[in-house]
């Protein structure tokens, strides 16, 4: 390795991460296919509906390709996916992809605003906690963090719904009707992340405040707030990014529950509806979309790491 690292090693590193993500996506699709092939009962008989004759069921089974060996079905599934074919939804009587794409913006809006809330609330809470280390604000924030980590997001959502929509009537209780409708679901989803980021920010800030550069800045006559905002905040961004990266799985999984609670028209709600109607093609397609989203977000986090942290650029 040459000591002077140009752009090439980074590109190679990022390229390798991308290749790895593609390989993992392929493996996950395989696992999900075999998982969903375990669905008990005769899928064709269920889909044909009650009162259908054996001949009709057999015909449907043949049409769906359920008579072929599992491996043949698997390869057909993979080649289908490569062409954007996610199977046939029996409820929608067509490929599920248009229905999924139509619902992605709602899920994106929900998760993105949850991340926004996490940054806007979590980081300042952690900074305040560190500034007032072992004093009352710190105690209050630390206790809130412990409490928020124990509260299920769907219960928090129910309480918020009950208070702000049902009792006070300030905010809409369901659907994606505008920015106001985003507040409660994204807050319920973000609560856990806010707690984790606040805790992480507090720890990092306390460590940073004890470092030499802070003392130097103090001796130059800089105020505490200026030091926090100008110097410490920069070092806090990396752990925050780490928390968000590590909790992407929570964010996506939690969105399914929160969407259900708020009747939010995203893909999580679609997935639960599909499971209820035994429309496994759709459930499987949404699962794949979630995994791909997870891989993409993690790639973005890794790329951001390289951008934010100059030390990483020398890899």
């Amino acid at each position: 390795m040459p000591a002077l690292a140009g752009p090439k090693p980074i590109l190679r590193y990022l390229g390798l991460r991308l290749l790895r993500a593609v390989a993992i996506a392929f493996a996950v699709v395989t696992i999900i296919f075999f998982l969903f092939s375990l669905v008990p009962g005769d899928q064709a008989a269920y889909l044909a509906g009650p009162g259908s004759t054996q001949a009709e069921i057999d015909k449907l089974r043949e049409a769906l390709g359920l008579n072929d060996p599992l491996l043949v079905q698997y390869f057909r599934h993979i080649f289908g996916l490569l062409q954007g074919d996610f199977g046939t939804s029996e409820v929608f009587k067509s490929g599920p992809l248009p229905f999924i794409l139509e619902r992605i913006p709602a899920t994106l809006a929900l998760t993105a605003s949850a991340i926004g809330l996490t940054i806007v609330i979590g980081i300042p809470a952690g900074l305040v906690s560190a500034m007032y280390h072992t004093r009352i604000p710190d105690l209050a924030i630390s206790v809130s963090v412990v409490a928020l980590l124990a509260v299920p997001n769907f219960w928090l959502g129910l309480l918020l719904l009950s208070l702000f929509s049902v009792q006070l009537g300030w905010l809409p209780s369901f659907g994606f009707s505008g920015p106001a409708a985003l507040v409660l679901p994204s807050l319920a989803l973000a609560a856990r992340l806010i707690a984790l980021v606040a805790r992480m920010t507090r720890g990092v800030t306390i460590d940073e405040l004890a470092k030499d550069y802070v003392r130097t800045a103090r001796s130059k006559g800089l105020g505490r707030t200026a030091i926090l905002l100008r110097h410490v905040l920069r070092n806090v961004m990396i752990p925050t990014l780490t928390v968000i990266g590590l909790q992407t799985g929570y964010l996506l999984g939690g969105s399914v529950v929160i969407e259900r609670l708020f009747a939010w028209p995203g893909i999580g709600d679609l997935m639960i509806n599909a499971i209820g109607q035994r429309d496994y093609a759709v459930a499987q397609a949404v699962t794949i979309i979630f995994v791909i989203a997870f891989l993409v977000i993690n790639l973005i986090v890794e790329f951001l790491y390289v951008l934010i942290n100059p030390r990483m650029r020398a890899v």
Partner: peptide, 9 residues
């Protein structure tokens, strides 16, 4: 790589 909750569901 499969989000925990999604896998569980």
């Amino acid at each position: 790589t499969i989000p925990n909750m999604i896998l569980a569901i």
